[in-house]
Design a protein around this nucleic acid. Structure first.
Lengths: 337, 337
DNA sequence: TTGAAAGCGATACCAG
DNA sequence: CTGGTATCGCTTTCAA
């Protein structure tokens, strides 16, 4: 209960010899105040250097005009753009962003969400890393509108992501159309993550897309490299590499593809001459690589806007539900022949 | 005044048939409460699903345990890491981060700062874009501890950045030591930005480092390319290019260097065979480029930690002042011969 | 058109 | 050790 020396509406009221109610009416353009007094009050907010106290306001109104964004980290180049659009759009409507990074640690996510609840945020945009029944129950218990993104939970939670399954299907078809007969898939460890209780929804979707793509293309066999690091997987792949068979590696995402390509190069295998590579995301730094990555692009802006708009809808109507799978396009690059 | 249906300490007090004061003592480990009642209270926070209301708490205590981070954007790959460390370190001490992006628009910065003030943040980490006397006065008027980073304001505001001037001096010396006789400097437009009232402190520092480096190296002339886009500057440079003279381009930062290199390549000039290039920042995507960029590296983590730690100091002692210029090192790459 | 007073949810002090 | 109450700054309702 530290008495701060900032000007309050009480100070203004005293100064103008009116009541705090009147000051409030002036400050918030409420009806029921004469032009003159309003003028007088507005004048004195300048001279007294008044800044309104959002904490008091939040307490009285029961909302904070704040939304929490809980995401893994900022390293995958697509987070920055996403947060950028979310921040801008939220700001337009008077909302602020609490940024919480989980680094895919369930503990950090759990704590973060609980703190957001304490802080009475009006809504949350969440990249979920949990998946268990109790976890989902705890999310509901928060009693805060939540929009999920990247990893889906249940139909209760509005969800937005690029259509990764279909995109991967198309990617396989595209690679096959170039004459590649052996198409392998490179993904971070899925099973290991699942056994740690992590949410692998998107990983699974994309893998499923790859598998069904292989089938639809009528290719002989699906080959998923899943165990170990990108470097270990690459080494494993290299062992089975046969020059006679036109081979391509489809990767979960661009940054993963970059690691794979570096590893290939360490093994003396040239891209695209010996092995084709395709990524996913079309991250910005691709612009400076030669050859340019063949990849799948989508609008991160659209994704961010959709997420925040859905959240605003939820906040108005708690019954609002929607799942939104965004479109994408294949970017032809130089990593496939 | 919407009556939310969340449990409050009042509810707990009623439920346990004690007073709110007692509940408070239990919740916050304050002395003056018996083991039994404490037990009883703590029990019921579970059964009643109580989450404490941070808004009420902030109002009563006069602080929000929140700090504002006001920065340009998240695109320069070094912002993510910086924000990452700031967020983590703040979280450790119970602080949350309001993220505000200004996109180098004075209007957005001004509004953002004023909103942060309304929201009673306890401190601010600011990448300043303003520079005028009134601007600085307005910052003081906020009455909130502010640590500046990247662009310096005045001695009143604690400041942290890498020592860009000295780094550029060393860079010139390094390039010269490789036998380059003509060393040009590529920087975004400084004068244009200044005439728009933007803060160019760091741009100027680095340029000054380049200039004094040239002098110290005893080179004939300094050549600063400043006007126009990176592409225009490059074109201009290409016109004056003479193969006989060993030439290198020192660039303000890596991402700028990348643009320059792409433009050079568009003009059919090869790096490093024909022209050497050196950057600044050692951004992450450098790891995947060939040849690797010769550049200047520094610890973004250290920078973030220093900034947040200085801010905490300021928050404890408003008189605290310090300017911190971090160390760096040259990363030998393949863009200089 | 205005003022007075009762909240919002928590903390902090004083009295018992 | 515990209860009661004023307080933080603002919104909202009810009277005047």
């Amino acid at each position: 209960m530290v008495k701060s020396m900032r000007t309050t509406i009480k100070d203004i009221a005293d100064y103008c010899k009116v009541s705090v109610g009147t000051v409030d009416r002036a400050l918030n353009n409420r009806p029921g105040i004469s032009k003159e007094t309003k003028e007088k009050v507005l004048q004195s907010i300048e001279t007294l250097n008044y800044h309104r106290n959002h904490t008091g306001r939040s307490l009285a109104m029961g909302k904070t005009k704040t939304i929490g964004v809980v995401c893994f980290d900022l390293y995958n180049n697509f987070f920055p753009e996403l947060i950028d659009t979310i921040e801008a759009r939220a700001k337009e409507r008077g909302y602020f962003i609490y940024l919480i990074l989980t680094h895919k640690a369930p503990r950090l996510e759990k704590d973060g969400l609980s703190y957001l609840c304490e802080r009475q945020v009006d809504g949350i945009i969440l990249f979920p890393i949990g998946v268990s029944r109790e976890y989902i129950a705890s999310l509901r218990q928060l009693g805060i509108p939540i929009v999920t993104i990247y990893n889906r939970l249940t139909a209760d939670f509005p969800f937005v992501d690029v259509n990764g399954k279909k995109a991967m299907e198309d990617a396989v078809a595209y690679i096959a159309s170039k004459g590649y007969r052996r198409i392998c898939y490179m993904t971070p460890e899925i099973e290991a993550q699942e056994s740690e209780g992590l949410n692998t929804y998107t990983l699974r979707q994309r893998e499923a897309g790859y598998l069904s793509g292989i089938q639809q293309a009528g290719l002989e066999r699906a080959e998923v490299y899943e165990k170990g690091s990108a470097e270990e997987k690459t080494e494993q792949f290299v062992k089975s590499y046969v020059p006679q068979e036109r081979t391509a590696l489809l990767c979960l995402c661009d940054s993963y593809a970059l690691r794979v390509m570096r590893a290939l190069s360490d093994h003396g295998i040239r891209v695209p001459e010996q092995v084709g590579v395709m990524g996913f995301d079309n991250i910005a730094s691709m612009d400076y690589m030669k050859p340019r990555m063949t990849t799948i692009a989508y609008s991160v802006k659209e994704m961010g806007c959709t997420a925040i708009d859905m959240l605003f809808q939820c906040m108005e109507d708690p019954e609002y539900r929607r799942e939104c799978l965004l479109d994408y396009r294949i970017v032809e690059g130089g990593t496939l022949l």
